[in-house]
Amino acid sequence: MSADTRYRGYDVLDKRDTPSWDAVTRAVIDERLTAADHLPQVATGAAWRVLRALCTCIVPQPADRPAVPLAALLDRRLAANRGDGFRDARLPPLREAWRIGLDALDAESRHGHGRGFADLDDEARIDLLHRVQHGACADPAWRGMPPALFFSHRVLPDLLSAYYAHPQAWSEIGFGGPANPRGYVRMVANRRDPWEPVEARPGEEARAYRENRRVR
């Protein structure tokens, strides 16, 4: 587990075989963990490289653990065409929005830097994304889709919801995770059930790590 978490040593998957997880949850999460082997189906070719680069900017991941396969998680969703049940009328449907958006990101990059988005360094990528977020770009490749809206209504919700639906993300932020049939009994401030993560207060990292290794 990475150094940028207050919950070192905690792995929500350690609870997989405890009363906190039921059969249906195990099946659902097991399936999600196979995303690493997913081959791109919708965002393919150049779009796949753009998407991967985009993911590293939106949710930068620490180098000292295997990365959550965020691009694959999104592509799986696009392949299944899982919508939200509503869309801003200015945006095209889910897949089309992403196809246009990834293509336009690449076009903006070539326009401004002479290189594709995936070939930019971090700083240039982030700079470009800030311009998209604030609608300060106008390449014809956007095909009428408002860039800022694409960023706020597709990029952020879709990627953040995919990343924070992954158990590794739950471990990082100290979320208790699945909880059926065993929910919780200690509800008030600064109390945790033995099956919840320990937050490392300054100076107590080693103890918290030991406790977290025992969380079941």
Partner: peptide, 26 residues
């Protein structure tokens, strides 16, 4: 977490500021 992360996105947060904010979840 998912609802919370999307709420952070609604504030326009992403990248390192987002990760830092998510650390305050609890």
């Amino acid at each position: 977490p998912v609802v919370w992360a999307v709420t952070q996105g609604g504030r326009g947060l992403w990248g390192k500021p987002l990760r830092a904010e998510m650390q305050k979840y609890n």
